[in-house]
Structure formats: C-alpha cells, structure tokens
Nucleic acid binder design. Structure first.
Length: 626
RNA sequence: GCCGACAUAGCUCAGUCGGUAGAGCAGCUGAUUCGUAAUCAGCAGGUCCGCGGUUCAAGUCCGCGUGUCGGCUCCA
C-alpha cells in the first residue's frame, strides 16, 4: 500500500479557509459567540418542538447552523418566535458550564440525554479517534455534547447581532444514506451594526446573481420543454460565449495547440475501454440502444445492437484523434483543443442556473507528452490560466490540489486502483505547482477518478464555492486505449496526458463573469458594444451612418430606433448596461462627430467618428476598457 | 435523488373569509422630436404551472405530478 498522499508530498500548511487569513483573536471570540448562539438556538427550538433530537451545530463563515430531527416541521414563519425565545434565553444570563467525562460516564450521560446522533458521534470519537474524555456543556436547561469553546454566559451575547436566515435539509453527516435532518442557518456577528451591514451587502449581492441578470440582459433561458439543466443561449449570451471562445483559441494558438472537432456521442464500448464506465455511469444520460433488424439467410430476423451514449467528457474522442496514426516522440507534445459539448446527468436537486447544468461546452484540450515534458507542459497550462484570468480581471479564487484518498471506503469505485500511478502523477503535479509559485491547498479525495487535479475554486455571489477551471494529469488511460509513440530509442512508450480547461465550461464560466462584472461587461465582451442615441429623429440618417461605419469595422453597434425621448433612450441603454453610448444631435451631425458616454462614468467626450472608432477598436483589441 | 419553500400577463408583483383576475414596467397604436436615467393618451395582453379531488362555486382548500429556488462542505 502506498502511504497517504498528504504524507508523501508535504506542502506548506494551508490555512483553514483559503479565502481568508488565519484565525486571529477577534475571530476566536466570534467563533465562541457563534458557537454559543447555536446552543441558544437549539434550546429555543427544543422549547418549540419538544422531543426533537440534535445533530451538529457548528459556527460557519457568517454565522452558525444547527441540525435537528424535528417532531414537527419548522418554516421561516417560525423564525420570529425562535428569535424571540433566543433573546429571552440571552436575557436570562445562563452560564455555560463545561464538564469532561470519561467513556462510561459519557455514555451514561448520553443515554440520559436520549440523543442518538450525539451518541453515534461519541462512539466514533472514542472508538476510532481514541479520545479519552468527552466534553459536555450546560447552559440553563440545555445540555449538549460539545467541544466548545463558549462564552461565559448567554449574557455575553446581549450585544451581538444575529438573524435566522433559512431552513434547509441536510443529511446526517452529509451522507445521503443517512437520516434527513432539518438545518436552521443563522447569520451572527459581534454587533448589530456589523450584522446589518452584512445583511445589506448580502442583499445587494443578490442583484448580481447570474440567474437574475441573465434574464434581465437576455443572455440565456432554461426551458422546461427542452429539459432541465439544458440552457438555451440567447443571441446576447451567445456573443459572450463566442468572445470567450475567440480568446481561448488565440491563447491556445500561441501556445502551440491544434484544434479538432469531434461528435457529441460515441459507442459505450469506447467508454468501457477508457474506464469511464462504470465509474461515471450514474452521471450519464441513459444510453441509446440501436436495434437493427436484418433479413437472415433463411428468412429469419437478426437483431444487431449498438449502444451509444451522450459523452460526459471529450477525452476518449481526443485520444482517438491521437491514435489516428502512429506518433513519434518528435510529434510531442501534441496539444489537441476543442470547445467540446458534453452532457452530464447531474442530480436534479443539484441543478442551478448556469452554474450546474446537464449540457455544457468545455474549454477542453488534451496534451500528450513524455514524462520529461509533463512538468513544463503543466507549468505552461498554469501560465495560460494566469493570462486568461488577468485579462478577465478575476482575482478572488484559489487553487486546490485535488488528490487521491487511498483510505476512501469507496476507493475502488471512486478511483483507478493503481497506487503507483497515483504516486507518480501526484509527485509530478506537486513539483509543477511548487515551481509555478502559485499558492494552493490540498483537497484530499477530490481527485478525478483517473488522476490528480488542480482545480480553481471560486465563490458565487450567493457564497457557494464552485470549481471554475481544472487541470488534470491522467495516467492509465494511455494503457487502456493502447496509446503510444515511438521514442528516440525506437521503442514504444506511453504518453502522459494532461487534461485542461482554463475557461472551464461556458455555462459556469459565463455565470461567474456575469456576477463578476455585475452584468456590465467590458466592451470586448458586451453583447451590444455601442448604442447610438439621437437627440431627435432629424438625426436618424446620421445615426445610421455612424452605425454602418462601426459595423463595417465589426463593432457591435446599433441605433435606438424607438420614438422615446432622449432621456428615456439613455436610461434604457444604461439599464441594459451598454458600455458605450453615442449621443448624436445637430452639433455632431454637422461636424461628423459623436458624443461618447461610457457606462458608469460621468464625463463625456465629443470627438470625430474616426477617433471614436479607433478608441473602441483599441479597447476591444486590448480586451480592456481603460 | 433527499428535505423545505415557492409557482398569477413577456418582467416584477398584488389578489382579504372560496364568489370566474389587477397594477407598474415591457409591447402595440397615435400624438410629441425633445441635448443627457422614465413625454402623453389609448389599446392589447391570462390554460392563475399541469392533472385530479372537495364544493352550488377553486387563483384561493386537499392530493399527485412538473419546474424553480435554498440546502444536503466547512465535522461535539
């Protein structure tokens, strides 16, 4: 058995929350407050729903939650009552008292408490983790098995700001085979002022939600009759896709990639061969069975069957391109790129706008190379990431080195069973990452089934973390598909394969970009780059000339043809977040000029049309509005 | 998939105690041609998500579906 990944490749210890700095003393205090509030909430809930049992109730990034198996359901309508009771408990000034009990005493206590889930966890702590004593905290009538720490008394919570946020379902220990519990989430901060500020910012962030903006800006729709998780890209959204694709193609061309185009479906037999099946079957659409009837020799009918699937990944298709003719080491690295459409059968409950869909276009490429080339190729991929993210102005993300977990109980179903392969590839990726200088955290057990990954993690405006991009090092597939090249020694060798998708999928990436820009795209990405607004209809002809001139230079310009007043037209252009508004009236028509009013800016400039055109073209070419 | 909430005009939403649906915006028509974030008037727009049930009567109550959203990671 190979040793655990983390033990073999030590890295600088990552901080607990990669988006934030390490815990300070103030954080420690906040942690106590939130932890204590969760007990106060649980006490209030038990008053309201006697006989309910408890799960976990930890502090989280912006507050805390507590899980319950409730005797009667709770809804948001019960929040005011729960909050009222919590305030009462705080007012009572119940002291928090800690006790540490050894095994037998602890189980006796737990039996008296009648908390089956606490007991289950206690068993695990004693049996598997081998702890000696178990902590219990009492405040007023409420007793909980808990590590702490807490504030001295609920009175210490009298000035804090808290507010129940939502009620949600959650499986005990996050495992879908377990009991479904009811989770109450709450926000909590040291002061009410901080809470109010946070809630206000949270509400403002909702305005940037890609689902909301996607509708307002006509970027995409998801139509029930097409199918859930299968977005339709509207003309405006398609422009953003096309621009991203153009960017990807340019970066890839410069980096020596070549493009291929492959079908969306394939025979399932190929996927068995690659090993994707059965690992991936539960995330694939049901297969298509082709049944052909043929006349047999003696008039009998034979059935010839072929089974096809919608591809959940592009890899096997690209591998077949690699295999289409003999390859020499002189051909390597071979970098095959495609914005490939794939289909994944995600759980219906996991679907969310463009962030989690069932049909998606991946910024995919596979790099076939020798072991000696792996590190440099991986570094070049990381550099491409950086370049793309710099252009897009994305900064709020972190890298996750997603590794194999040899101790995962579902290991054999989850990962290719080849410890040696894992060890080698993880070492190579680790070396490349250290050399790249990029900071990263380790995500044990987050690897793809066929190899370790570097994932790029983002947060959405609603605070959910998602993987935006991924780079993976594949071992084993070359063997399975018998991919090989002739080396300088005139012998056959297996290539290493890097899977990479710096721009992820259009669906998720555009979702991030919508939220990142708040829908106000820079000129190069904007569906409408220039909107021409006339002062009055006398200037329509000149406005048409302006539009024709700009469109002749492939600038996405259009004229507001409505009979609205100028003020209304400007308002419409601004609410549509169009980056460049051109005002034309008598002065402009006479001088051959336009007046530029840019999104989010006060100052305006009147300039010759040629100058405006050059300015817009420059900003488009630079992919940056300065 | 599971737990919960929600589903009314293109959009955002109102609709009381069960009595056959309203507003604003968008759209269309007409008038207005205006110099920097909403000109005025009129018109039109509905399978109240779907199916079933209760009822003299259902947008409203009940059941079943469908869809959307929040969660199911941050481990006493």
């Amino acid at each position: 058995m190979a040793p655990p990944a983390a033990a073999v490749w030590p890295v600088a210890p990552p901080c607990e929350d990669p988006m934030h700095d390490e815990m300070t003393e103030a954080d420690e205090q906040l942690y106590r407050i939130r932890h204590s509030l969760s007990h106060v909430m649980a006490q209030a809930v038990l008053q309201l729903r006697p006989g309910s049992t408890l799960g976990f109730g930890p502090p989280i990034a912006d507050g805390f939650y507590y899980d319950f198996v409730l005797t009667e359901p709770l809804t948001e309508e019960d929040f005011p009552e729960i909050e009222k009771r919590m305030k009462q408990i705080i007012k009572e000034g119940q002291p928090f008292e800690q006790e540490e009990l050894e095994r037998d005493a602890a189980f006796a206590r737990l039996a008296a408490m009648g908390e089956p889930y606490k007991r289950e966890y206690a068993e695990e702590l004693f049996e598997k983790k081998g702890i000696a004593k178990l902590g219990f905290y009492t405040n007023g009538p409420f007793l909980d098995m808990c590590e702490g720490p807490h504030v001295e008394s609920t009175r210490a919570l009298s000035k804090v700001g808290f507010k129940l946020r939502s009620v949600a379902g959650a499986y005990w220990r996050g495992d879908s085979r377990n009991q479904m519990m009811t989770r109450l989430y709450a926000w909590a901060f040291e002061t009410r002022v901080e809470l109010d500020a946070y809630v206000k910012a949270w509400k403002e962030a909702q305005a940037r939600d890609h689902k909301k903006l996607g509708k307002e800006l006509d970027l995409f729709v998801i139509d029930e009759e097409i199918g859930k998780g299968l977005p339709l890209w509207l003309p405006n959204g398609t422009i953003i896709r096309d621009e991203l694709e153009k960017l990807a193609k340019e970066l890839e061309f410069k980096a020596g990639y070549v493009r291929v185009a492959t079908p969306h479906i394939a025979k399932t037999s190929l996927y068995y061969k690659t090993g994707h099946l059965p690992y991936y079957a539960s995330h694939m659409y049901p297969f298509m069975e082709l049944k052909e009837t043929r006349e047999g020799e003696h008039g009998t009918e034979e059935e010839v069957r072929e089974t096809y699937c919608l591809r959940p990944m592009n890899c096997p298709h690209h591998h077949k391109v690699f295999a289409s003719r003999p390859r020499s080491y002189r051909d390597l690295p071979l970098r095959l790129a495609e914005y490939g459409q794939v289909y994944r059968f995600e759980d219906s409950g996991a679907l969310s706008g463009l962030l989690r869909v069932r049909g998606m276009a991946m910024n995919d490429a596979h790099i076939y190379c020798t072991e000696e080339q792996v590190k440099d190729e991986f570094l070049a991929v990381m550099k491409m990431h950086q370049e793309a993210y710099d252009i897009l102005g994305l900064t709020d993300y972190y890298f996750r080195f997603s590794t194999w977990d040899p101790e995962d109980p579902k290991g054999k179903q989850k990962y290719i069973d080849d410890p040696q392969g894992w060890e080698t590839t993880q070492r190579l990726v680790h070396e490349a990452m250290v050399e790249s200088g990029a900071k990263f955290v380790i995500g044990k057990g987050e690897a793809a089934f066929y190899g370790p990954k570097i994932d790029v993690q983002f947060k959405t405006v609603t605070g959910r973390e998602e993987t935006a991009s991924t780079n993976q090092l594949d071992f084993g597939i070359a063997e399975r598909l018998d991919l090989e090249y002739v080396g300088p020694d005139n012998k056959m060798h297996r290539p290493y394969i890097i899977h990479r998708a710096p721009l992820g999928t259009h669906e998720r990436f555009v979702a991030f970009l919508i939220e990142h820009y708040g829908g106000a795209f820079p000129t190069w990405l904007a569906p409408v780059q220039v909107r021409v607004v006339t002062v009055g209809e006398r200037f329509d002809d000149y406005a048409e000339e302006v539009v024709a001139q700009l469109r002749g230079q492939f600038i996405r310009a259009e004229r507001d043809k409505s009979s609205d007043t100028m003020g209304k037209k400007i308002r419409n252009a601004v609410t549509s977040k169009i980056p460049n508004i051109l005002i034309v009236g008598e002065r402009e028509a006479e001088d051959g000029t336009v007046t530029l009013r840019r999104y989010g800016r006060e100052e305006q400039l009147t300039m010759p049309l040629a100058e405006l055109q050059a300015d817009v073209l420059r900003r488009i070419a630079a992919r940056k509005d300065d």
